[in-house]
Design a protein around this nucleic acid. Structure first.
Lengths: 207, 207
DNA sequence: GGTGATATTAAACGATCGTTCGTTTCGAGC
DNA sequence: GCTCGAAACGAACGATCGTTTAATATCACC
């Protein structure tokens, strides 16, 4: 089997377990057991349990948000500075996380959803640092694209967007389908992205 | 000061603390300390820590969903069996939770958001039992009101709706405003309800 | 072959967790 | 006055938590 260095095995195991049961719901004994590593290796490689999840978040969300910023910059350049249509902005916003996080074995969205409701001040600080530049850039772009909304209204609706995406990513196949009595069919990233864009674009355009 | 029976004081304290830091993030020692009760009183009155949060969820969400079902039944009767407009259905769906949970001292939404991502099988069972009838009733009503959507699409978008509401309730004043650099102004329930209805109705109507 | 830095290991630490136990307090009913 | 059950209490239980320590293993390099 593929067993790279211990550090990477710990990260993989931690992502899976944190995504399933949250930060406080998983002990580093479980993580190191799944990673086939020693109990003390987490503290050796990451300093502490909090340092482990911090590495996890920075790695995943850092590159993800950089990809979104790059796509937005590129689209903005291609348009020659003209305001982008809402659908395009939203597609850039939704597509990277959906395609990264939807599918079998992608256990990060559960962790992402939990992080948004985290209480640990240290984790909140990480989230703000990782999401801050992204929020700034997309908000100004959306402000130009939907000028009829006052900032207060736009902010509220962007908050709806984020909630819709997180919820869909985190439990799209669990509770919602249990409610509807559907079979746990695999989610289609393209379908989900399209639905998110259509739903949220219509919601943003509305006066 | 108003100190009713111990059981009620425990419920109040638990709601506040669970809403702030989640089920696993709060010890029953903290709860009983805040409630000015003995450590063993939680196990005496609720059997266990899980029994405590179960009582909490059933009390809050049971009456809340009953109110929504009553409102929907009444609206359906008043319309003489005609299909209701989407905006009315959504208003009935959003208004009760928003007005109950938004405002100072309303600490339940954080708990609600966490419960939607809970991993405890027992809590999931409670959630399904409390939300099942509500989901059935609203989905059939929405299916009649937005007939152009196939069930799969409708289900995905209703999932967006739920996520938007939960996210707005749970952290409308924390992270979103921190991103935008806004002052933590008090949320207006009427504004939030209206925005949710407008945003989601437009999203649902879209082809 | 020895040396030193890096990595891994077993074992233990103190703290905190949820729960349980035996006792005491309290008030209504006879 | 007495009893009896509900309620509250202090104290302890066993378990598990994150973390630390000291010893051992691994391996490139001179």
């Amino acid at each position: 089997m593929g067993t790279p260095d211990t550090r990477q095995r710990i990260l993989t195991a931690a992502e899976e377990l944190f995504g399933q049961r949250g930060f406080q719901g998983v002990s580093i004994r479980e993580i190191t057991h799944l990673a086939d590593a020693n109990l003390a290796s987490v503290n050796y490689h990451f300093g502490s349990k909090a340092g482990l999840i911090r590495s996890l978040v920075e790695h995943h969300l850092g590159s993800l948000n950089q990809e979104r910023l790059d796509l937005l910059e590129q689209a903005s350049a291609n348009s020659g500075g003209a305001t982008l249509p809402v659908e395009q902005i939203l597609d850039i916003f939704f597509r990277p996380p959906v395609f990264r996080f939807v599918g079998p074995g992608r256990t990060f969205p559960g962790l992402l959803a939990r992080l948004h409701n985290s209480c640990d001040p240290e984790l909140i600080e990480v989230m703000l640092r990782v999401f801050g530049p992204l929020a700034d850039r997309f908000l100004t772009e959306l402000c130009r694209s939907v000028p009829h909304l006052e900032p207060r209204t736009l902010l509220a609706r962007v908050n709806f967007m984020v909630g819709a995406m997180i919820h869909a990513l985190a439990e799209g196949e669990t509770m919602a389908q249990a409610f509807a009595g559907l079979e746990p069919r695999q989610q289609d990233p393209e379908f989900l992205t399209r639905q998110l864009v259509l739903f949220c674009a219509a919601g943003l355009r509305h006066e």
